[in-house]
């Protein structure tokens, strides 16, 4: 009987029994060639894969929660997300990230209509829908209809602002702190902040 922790690559029947596809073959071939040529080492590849796996929306959620309980931090976050993230020990990378703050009057939502730019170092990998033709095409033209599909119905008096990430800048939505969370600590608040809250397709909800 095998011990699960002995095997660094647990068998994944759905993936590993699938036929070897053309693009997977190309990927493995390029990796092998570039390693042989010394462009990067096997160790660098392994560490980069670990780095990718280590990122999740929990990092972004910590920033949002801290901004709700610490007004000075919020100011610093709005001024420079990458620097504010460093304060919490989060490496947000070299591409500048800008926080766009919701208010009672304004709801922000982010998209990249030209490709799929996304604040990956704070939110992890982008969801498939963020990269889809439907989202990229429609959200700039009919944001309210798209948000309604996500279950978000915005009142008439709220202005929707769509941010199209067309340059080397990434956007992070800073949602409003929901009512009924007075006195909550940072981890409890962070648990309310989902990935979609920081894209702008959801709002934090207090379980009731």
């Amino acid at each position: 009987m095998s011990h699960p922790h002995d095997d660094p690559h647990p068998h994944q029947p759905d993936i590993e029994d699938a036929p070897l596809g053309y693009h997977e073959t190309l990927t493995e071939a390029l990796l092998a060639l570039l390693r042989d040529k010394g462009v990067f080492s096997a160790d660098e590849l392994r560490r980069t894969l670990e780095e990718i796996d280590s990122r999740s929306p929990a990092d972004g959620a910590r920033l949002v929660a801290r901004s709700w309980i610490d007004p000075a931090f919020r100011e610093r976050l709005l001024h420079d997300v990458n620097a504010a993230a460093r304060e919490l020990g989060i490496d947000a990378g070299g591409i500048p990230i800008r926080a766009v703050a919701d208010t009672e009057q304004v709801h922000n939502v982010i998209v990249c209509t030209l490709c799929s730019c996304y604040p990956r170092l704070l939110l992890g990998a982008a969801p498939d829908w963020y990269k889809s033709r439907a989202y990229r095409s429609r959200v700039v033209r009919e944001p309210r209809a798209v948000l309604r599909e996500f279950g978000l119905e915005l009142p008439d008096e709220v202005q929707v602002v769509v941010h199209d990430a067309t340059a080397e800048l990434r956007y992070l939505v800073l949602p409003c702190r929901p009512a009924g969370t007075e006195g909550w600590d940072e981890p409890a608040l962070a648990a309310l902040v989902t990935r979609d809250c920081m894209i702008g397709t959801a709002m934090p909800i207090v379980p009731g």
């Binding site: 030209l114 889809s132 033709r133 439907a134 989202y135 095409s137 599909e149 996500f150």
Partner: peptide, 12 residues
Amino acid sequence: DMGGLAAGPVER
């Protein structure tokens, strides 16, 4: 460069 084109529902 598809911003603003018509498309179906967002498949989530």
